[in-house]
């Protein structure tokens, strides 16, 4: 019984510090792609934290939304951001590209 609670404490402490550490890395990383991938990892760790807090409902929602869908949204937005950058190096107002199909 003692070793189980000790292990749980160790797990909680490690998880808590990993959450803070990954959040810090995601928010300070120079590369935006890297930041988003770290943010997805952060979402998965959050799901673990929900399980530790006896909140399996929240864990399910976080795993599906926080880790999955938010990551997809962010990566899609980043791809659009970069393709906008690539097609328009100069900030000009007229966005009437070639005739659309």
């Amino acid at each position: 019984m003692e070793t189980v609670t000790l292990l749980q404490w160790a797990f909680d402490v490690v998880l808590g510090f990993s959450l803070l550490w990954i959040a810090w890395l995601a928010l300070t990383s120079l590369d935006l792609f890297r930041a988003i991938v770290l943010f997805i990892a952060f979402g998965l760790l959050m799901a673990l934290a929900w399980v530790r807090l006896d909140a399996p409902d929240v864990a399910l929602a976080e795993a599906a939304i926080g880790a999955g869908l938010t990551g997809a949204l962010l990566l899609a937005a980043l791809a659009r951001l970069e393709s906008n950058n690539a097609t328009k190096p100069t900030p000009e107002k007229d966005h009437q590209p070639e005739a659309h199909d």
Binding site: P56, D57, A59, L60, A61, A64, I65, G68, L69, A72
Partner: peptide, 21 residues
């Protein structure tokens, strides 16, 4: 048991995102 409309809806949304990808 754990589950419900939001979880099911987000899984459905993930399926849609996969199809779009």
């Amino acid at each position: 048991a754990p589950g419900g409309a939001f979880q099911a809806g987000s899984v459905l949304g993930a399926a849609g995102v996969l199809l779009l990808l």
